[in-house]
Amino acid sequence: MMVLLPILILALVVAVTAFSSIGTMKMRLGQGKTGLWMLGGYFVLLLVSMIVSTFLPSETTASMNEESTHSKKRSEISIPMLIAEGKVDEVNKDTLVKEWSFELQDHPLTLEAYVENEGGPGIFIEKTSDLTGKIQASYYRSPIYVDGLKVQEEFKPTLVMNQQTLTVSVENPVDVHYQMFTSEFPFTQFSQNSVGRERGSRIEWGEEAVYIRVPEETEIIGENGNYTLIDPAA
């Protein structure tokens, strides 16, 4: 019966409109050729909209099949896991969003991380003999897909070096607003792709990580567990 209520309300709305325009036709309104003119005008409007809509900035999201390949790829390679295992070279180069380089004297490095929401990027630090007097940081992020469409808006954490304190801040979340047009029910009923399609829950989150390389002898002072030290032995 829950389904019925909105239908009844709808029926009422349509009935009232129909009766007020058709019903009064027996009297005064709608006399003559008004109906034909309105229909003609409406079709012109529809035609114009059809043409205009092709010029609107718009994008067609990928179909289901392509989407599933995205997710497969991602499940294969987990960025934080690879980095944690020291296999940075294996991380997809496309996911590298930004790199930083800071001077660092022989001082202990204090790491401060400001992450607004809980699931911020993991910070991985690797001590390496390749570097002296500086640290290198990079931010990796795999794309987010909304209904199979890659979110274009970039987000980068802010890394600031002050004396010997490196601050990683993740704030000002990026607001993304999409207007998604979906097909109407008559057009999805017979398409095989739409099997079990649910509207409005197709965001596929990506993965992200901040990878910092520091000189081997650097002492790292951080808050408890705000970073992961990559163990070269592992």
């Binding site: 979340p173 993304v176 207007q179 998604m180 047009f181 965001i203 989150w205």
Partner: peptide, 16 residues
């Protein structure tokens, strides 16, 4: 709003 510091808002429209 997901863990990647994104607030994603999707408005669904159709002619149903």
């Amino acid at each position: 709003s997901g863990g990647m510091n994104y607030n994603i808002r999707v408005e669904y429209y159709n002619a149903d």
